[in-house]
Amino acid sequence: MNKWQLPFLAVFCFVSESIAVDVWPKGDWYIHYFFVPRFFLIFLVLTAMHFGGTRAMGYGFIFGFLYDCVYTELLGVYAFAYTLLAYLAGKATKWLQPNWLVSFLLSLLAIALLDSYVYGIQLLIGRTDWPFAVFWERRLWPTLLLNTAFLLIGLPVLERWLAKIRRLEQGE
């Protein structure tokens, strides 16, 4: 039973991104600003901090690939980014004191990196012609804002849940 808690949390975070966009009120704000939920990435960074980079990399690769297949139909982009970010988060935890502030900032940094990277790819393959300033104004800061709000509410819950899962696993 305990074995399934972490995968369940992963699936939940993954699916909730799509649902969040679906139920988001579709007003002028939705059309002009791109609030991109990155709940799974937050989960990934926290997993890397609690369970080590290797395990997070596994999750990153599998769910990144799912993301590519199901949503963007551009294979490899998220699989690569999630795996790399999980690796870096795992490395970073080794010489950072793990506390809530660190996980908060690390998550935001990962989101900023991921979004800039995806923007770079879109620019490279010609699917967008936004200059960086527009990307910053319409995409990056709304995304960071939304995820900051999510972190303020969800981080304590996620942290506690992950800590509990880790304790249970160590107890076995």
Partner: peptide
């Protein structure tokens, strides 16, 4: 029925 959306919205698609 719509069951999902591309969350990153670089391409507006629905599932």
């Amino acid at each position: 029925t719509v069951i999902g959306r591309n969350p990153d919205r670089w391409r507006e698609t629905i599932i």
